[in-house]
């Protein structure tokens, strides 16, 4: 179990808002801090993976329960 520094709730949001908010939130975090993000847009799953790759941040964990996605992301850069 990792320690969560920041939680971002993107439930109910449609593309591209989850990624825009993710980008904005992580930008304000310290390097090394860990973000927990929730979302319900089926498109988010791939988007978050691509965004992390692109920005050089690490996607530590992805899970889905009852149509709600949960991502754990660590700011690396």
């Amino acid at each position: 179990m990792v320690d969560i520094d920041v939680t971002l709730d993107c439930k109910g949001l449609s593309c591209p808002m989850p990624i825009v908010k993710l980008n904005s939130t992580v930008k304000k975090m310290e390097i090394g801090q860990i973000l927990e993000m929730f979302g319900t847009d089926p498109g988010s799953k791939k988007d978050v993976v691509l965004w992390c790759k692109r920005k050089g941040n690490e996607l530590l964990e992805t899970s889905e329960e009852g149509g709600i996605f949960r991502f754990i992301i660590q700011r690396k850069k």
Binding site: P16, K21, S24, G66, I68
Partner: peptide
Amino acid sequence: YLMWEADKYPGISAGATKTFLGA
């Protein structure tokens, strides 16, 4: 605009949400 909004006014895209009938 969207990126500016998310930085300056994150409240616009935050607040009470509801998801039902899912999965």
